[in-house]
């Protein structure tokens, strides 16, 4: 598969069409495997769409005690093989991108597999097919990149660890990698003094989702 995904968070408007569409994928069994996280809901409307980045050396697969997470020939990191998965959830907490999901009741690990039923046949994954702004795009590198002013980068640096991925993040700068330092430079800029911060009085469905699903990666 020459095609891959290109994620451009600055185009994301947080509409969650991708979240809804993801459930329709044949390999996801009615569950959504994509995340749209608010960076700081009280401070900014910015949202971060997260799909599996399909690492070239996937941490999730290597920490799996059952050797249940396999890569396809095209470099797609698959959901855990059901007969093998031992219900340990190592992958959920080891993934540097916070991607794999788990259902405790069904002993079932699932993750974004780039809608393998579709992408293996050259069709767009569900999320890319419905994204209204092009924040999630699917195609060949030479098709997508000339259409954008942003720079495709497939290297993340988490502290000392370089992680190379099949999926690209579109950067608005000339950087060669996304450095996740955990210090929250931008976060520091966003935070207002405590007295100025507004506490939402009504819990919306989105808060419920964040509390009960997004935080634990339980689906």
């Amino acid at each position: 598969m020459e095609e891959t995904m290109f994620i451009d968070p600055q185009r994301c408007i947080g509409c969650r069409s991708c979240v809804a569409a993801c459930r329709e994928c044949g390999t996801h069994k009615g569950y959504s495997m994509i995340y749209v996280d608010y960076l700081d809901r009280a401070e900014t409307t910015a949202t971060m769409p997260t799909v599996c980045m399909h690492c070239t050396e996937p941490t999730c697969a290597l920490v799996c005690p059952a050797d249940a997470i396999k890569m396809s020939e095209e470099g797609i990191v698959m959901s855990a093989l059901k007969p093998r998965c031992l219900d340990c959830r190592n992958c959920v907490n080891a993934c540097p991108f916070g991607v794999p999901k788990y259902n405790t009741e069904m002993h079932l690990q699932m993750k974004c597999d780039m809608c393998y039923d579709r992408s293996s046949e050259g069709l767009m994954p569900m999320c890319a097919s419905v994204c209204p702004t092009g924040a999630i795009a699917f195609g060949k590198y030479e098709q997508i990149v000339p259409l954008r002013r942003t720079k495709p980068v497939n290297v993340h640096v988490f502290g000392n660890q370089h992680v190379e991925t099949k999926v690209y993040l579109m950067l608005p700068t000339d950087a060669d990698a996304v450095e996740v330092d955990g210090c929250g430079v931008f976060e520091g800029m966003l935070q207002r003094p405590a007295e100025e911060r507004q506490t939402p009085t009504v819990e919306s469905w989105i808060d419920t989702q964040v509390e009960h699903s997004d935080k634990s990666n339980e689906f």
Binding site: N160, V178, E179, V180, K215
Partner: peptide
Amino acid sequence: DYTMPDGRQLQDYCPRCKRVMRGLSYA
């Protein structure tokens, strides 16, 4: 080696915070 500049490991963060931290780094 997922040691962060503050000495913590990336695994010390919950999955959602890992996603948000990446978003913040991007931002």
